[in-house]
Design a binder for these strands. Structure first.
Lengths: 133, 133
DNA sequence: GTTTTTGCAAAATGTTTGCATTGTA
DNA sequence: TACAATGCAAACATTTTGCAAAAAC
């Protein structure tokens, strides 16, 4: 009986990882499914969900809650922040560089042991900004 | 034909608002429903969801995505941030005071017209911190 | 051969909606 | 009486799970 889960890089998982690494638009699971099916037409939705969860659990992807109902995924696992368009949902990676003293202050004030943070800016993306709604 | 929606303060809506104003733990819609039912046993779930949406739309409450599946609600509508416990989900209001220049920098770098932000710290709450898991 | 993974369908969540009924100005 | 609000159930969207068949070691 194995304690560690066997993590095979099956063709399906490779396809999911490839799609994620080739995307910079923070796709939802459904987006990933659609894109994966272009090269692997028979893949099931559950397989994609499972693959995404595995990638997140193993630190190869991040799961983001950018405001809509569906979670979005990011193959960029380095610490970074996001800007999200409130009109079309477009999201971009940014690095705000939050001053470390802020976390310290929050810890003091709240009594929490602060271990991380999540920062999201909202606004209009370049396209929507110049769009005569 | 009225353009403005008629916004009556029905007993049900008052009960939802009262529960929210009397809570500091950022309850989910289900939590609110449970609490409202203590004083208004017959209230339906849809009514609570509709009331919460109305309060959010009219600026009397905030809808928060603190990490779990369910949205959480906050009657504190002043600009503020949150710390969330990764173990038990407890959430507290804090004010980190994000330097305004960060938003400016993000706008420059991304090309977005930045209008707001959402900052959430994660960690262990005082109770979980001292709990011998 | 045993164990993992897949694909499908069903179930589980959280939330919204259709609609007949009730309440109220 | 007209129109908004309620309560219920059904619909919805997203994600997870059970399970038999297929694939991999």
């Amino acid at each position: 009986m194995t304690v560690e889960a066997d993590r095979r890089l099956t063709p399906q998982r490779r396809a999911v990882l490839d799609v994620l690494r080739g995307s910079t638009d923070h796709p939802t699971a459904q987006d990933v499914l659609d894109r994966v099916r272009r090269t692997a037409p028979g893949i099931g939705a559950a397989t994609v969900y499972r693959a995404l969860n595995m990638l997140v659990a193993s630190g190869q992807a991040l799961e983001l809650a950018l405001g809509d109902a569906a979670a979005r995924y990011d193959a960029n696992t380095a610490r970074h922040d996001h800007v999200v368009c409130t009109r079309c949902g477009a999201a971009a990676d940014v690095d705000a560089g939050l001053p470390p003293r802020l976390a310290n202050r929050v810890a003091e004030v709240s009594g929490f042991a602060v271990t991380g943070h999540d920062l999201k800016f909202t606004g209009l993306c370049p396209a929507c900004k110049s769009d005569p709604l």
